[in-house]
Design a protein around this nucleic acid. Structure first.
Length: 229
DNA sequence: CACCAGGCAAGTA
DNA sequence: TACTTGCATGGT
C-alpha cells in the first residue's frame, strides 16, 4: 500500500514497516506490561462495552454495565425484552444514553435473527463476512465491529482508534487525515494475523496514548516511544 | 470555566 | 462525495 503524505520513508532507515511496528510494540509492552484486555466476563458483555465506550471514557461505561449486571441483564435475550427507555435510563452514566440504547437494541436484534442470541456461534463465521454483517447494524461502525471481532469473537481483526491514528501521525508514519480502513490495512498488511499481538497492540496504543499522547500534548521525553521520533 | 473521552449516523450542499 | 452536526455523562 502506498500512502500519500507519508513523510517518513522507513526504507531509507533500512527498516521494513513490519520491523518498525514490532519494535514500537515491543517498546510499549516493555514499558507497560500486558494489558489483559478486554475487560468483561462474557463475549456479550464485551460487545456491549464496545458500543457503550464509543467516544466515552471507560469509567463511565463501567457504571452503566454495573447497573445492568446488578439486574442480571447482561444477556442478549434480557436486553431484547427490556423496553428501550428503561435501557436508556440504566446506561445513562455512559453518555449519549438514548442513542446508545437504540444501538444496543439494534445489536441484540441482529443477534436474534443471525444466531438466535447464541453469540458463541457467531465466531464460527468467516471474519470478513461477519465484519460486513456487523457494519450493517446501525450503531456499529468500524472500530466497534473490529473490537467485537477481536476481543469478543477471537478474530484477528486489527482495531484502530483515535489514539492509534494520533500516535502514528505524530511519528510521521501516516497523514493526519488517514481513513479508518487505510490505517487498519497499514497494520494488517505487514503483521501476522495473531490474536494476541493485535489485542495487545491496540490496548497498548490506548494506554500509552492516554498517558503520553493527549490531544494538546507535544513530544514527551518519558514516553516509551520517544526514541521512535 | 474549557476540554476531553477506546464513534457513529444523519443531515447538508 | 465530502463536510458538518447532534448526541451527554463525568473527570481533569
Amino acid at each position: 500500500m502506498n500512502i500519500p503524505g507519508l513523510h517518513r520513508e522507513l526504507e531509507t532507515m533500512n527498516m521494513s514497516r513490519h520491523t518498525f511496528l514490532l519494535n514500537m510494540y515491543g517498546a510499549m509492552f516493555d514499558a507497560m506490561g500486558p494489558s489483559e484486555w478486554w475487560p468483561g466476563q462474557s463475549a456479550f458483555e464485551i460487545c456491549l462495552g464496545a458500543i457503550l465506550t464509543q467516544n466515552t471514557s471507560w469509567g463511565n461505561v463501567e457504571k452503566a454495565i454495573w447497573n445492568l449486571r446488578a439486574r442480571d441483564l447482561l444477556q442478549p435475550g434480557e436486553l431484547f425484552a427490556l423496553p428501550e427507555d428503561k435501557l436508556a435510563e440504566l446506561i445513562r452514566p455512559a453518555g449519549y444514553f438514548r442513542v446508545k440504547a437504540r444501538r444496543v437494541k439494534s445489536f441484540v436484534h441482529f443477534l436474534r435473527r443471525e444466531v438466535g442470541f447464541d453469540i458463541g456461534s457467531l465466531a464460527e463465521q468467516d471474519m470478513d463476512a461477519l465484519r460486513g454483517k456487523l457494519l450493517q447494524v446501525k450503531g456499529i461502525g468500524p472500530e466497534t465491529a473490529d473490537s467485537m471481532l477481536l476481543y469478543a469473537l477471537d478474530k484477528p481483526s486489527f482495531v484502530v482508534d483515535a489514539y492509534t491514528a494520533r500516535i502514528c501521525h505524530r511519528h510521521g508514519l501516516v497523514p493526519s487525515d488517514i481513513g479508518y480502513d487505510e490505517l487498519r490495512e497499514f497494520f494488517m498488511d505487514v503483521l501476522p494475523p495473531d490474536i494476541y499481538l493485535f489485542n495487545e497492540f491496540h490496548a497498548l496504543f490506548v494506554r500509552v496514548g492516554k498517558k503520553w499522547c493527549k490531544k494538546r500534548n507535544g513530544l514527551c521525553a518519558d514516553c516509551p516511544l520517544f526514541s521512535f521520533f
